[in-house]
């Protein structure tokens, strides 16, 4: 039982990061009906930038802020230069283009920073806390991750549900034509969606980097996990992405704990297959398939 508790607690921090990345995927999906498979590539790139700033300045907070800005800019660039020009009718093309961006970003990062894994030293201790006479699988750094994630999720949900800006954003996602008629600037909402997603992904990247190592390919698995979480949540739902992101983290942590880390992608695949067999559109999805 203690072991179960340990594994579960250990999974929450990872789950929070998966949730953030899933959130980024959902933000892009909601704004432009595209799954941005380059999202982890963008996050990887901004994390490298952030690591560089961190090493130069020594300030983690500054590094995080720079990552947020860089993420927004990169999201914007990808949207304006790549995704916007792709023909709307070419659904496969949009998906393929995101993979093109992913490949290019990974190569560019490899050119600039090399392929060797780099360590990202956490700003606070990343070893288990001692409390009530035992060592818990939760570190100060994990607590920092919870804090950042919670603040971010709360802020986003406030923006989306309580502000007129959030309403406009939701409207343009659900029905761009109607939103346009009602005076919402849909193209601006698209840009904002991509920029926000870029920032959220960048935060996820900076947060996860200390727990793994940083290399051009090191976030590939995170993409699979985040996609799994986002799909289970229905791709449309912020709440779903967060809930199932944390859930996916928990399941993976339990699997890794009780068996072996290399099982994680297999479990993720099985999870995805089962969910998609039951609900081809995921849970919480509002979109309906086409009728004659």
């Amino acid at each position: 039982m203690n072991q179960f508790l340990d594994f579960s607690l250990g999974g929450i921090a990872n789950g929070a990061v998966i949730a953030l990345m899933a959130l980024a995927l959902v933000l892009v999906w909601r704004s432009s009906r595209v799954v941005n498979f380059a999202q982890v590539g963008q996050a990887m790139f901004t994390t490298f930038i952030s690591l560089w700033i961190y090493e130069v300045s020594g300030s983690w907070l500054l590094a995080l802020l720079i990552a947020i800005c860089a993420g927004a800019i990169l999201g914007l660039v990808v949207h304006l230069l790549v995704m916007k020009p792709v023909r709307r009718a070419d659904a496969s093309g949009a998906i393929i283009a995101t993979f093109g961006v992913l490949i290019a970003l990974q190569a560019a990062a490899g050119m600039i920073w090399g392929g060797d894994p780099k360590a990202f030293v956490p700003p606070v201790a990343n070893s288990g806390l001692e409390f009530a006479g035992r060592i818990w699988p939760v570190s100060w750094y994990d607590l920092l991750i919870f804090a950042v994630t919670s603040v971010l999720v709360l802020a986003l949900s406030y923006v989306f549900t309580r502000t007129s800006f959030g309403l406009a954003m939701r409207a343009s996602a659900l029905n761009p034509e109607v939103a346009r008629i009602s005076g919402v600037r849909v193209s601006r909402m698209l840009i904002l969606g991509w920029a926000m997603a870029g920032s959220v992904g960048a935060i996820a990247g900076v947060l996860i980097a200390p727990s793994a190592t940083l290399s051009p390919n090191s976030f590939d698995l995170l993409l699979v996990f985040a996609f799994t979480a986002a799909v289970i949540g229905g791709l449309d739902s912020l709440v779903g992405a967060v809930a199932f992101g944390v859930g996916t983290g928990l399941v993976l942590s339990l699997v890794t704990g009780y068996s072996d880390a290399s099982n994680a992608p297999i479990v993720s695949l099985v999870l995805l297959v089962v969910i998609l067999l039951m609900k081809p559109d995921g849970f919480f999805s509002q979109s309906k398939s086409r009728v004659v």
């Binding site: 999906w29 799954v35 590939d220 699979v224 996609f227 992608p265 081809p280």
Partner: peptide, 21 residues
């Protein structure tokens, strides 16, 4: 049964998961 992005994501998981076996 899946629409575009869902299929791409599923097969992505497949591409990562199968070699792990």
């Amino acid at each position: 049964r899946l629409r575009g992005p869902y299929l791409a994501g599923l097969t992505l998981a497949f591409a990562v998961g199968i070699p792990a076996i």
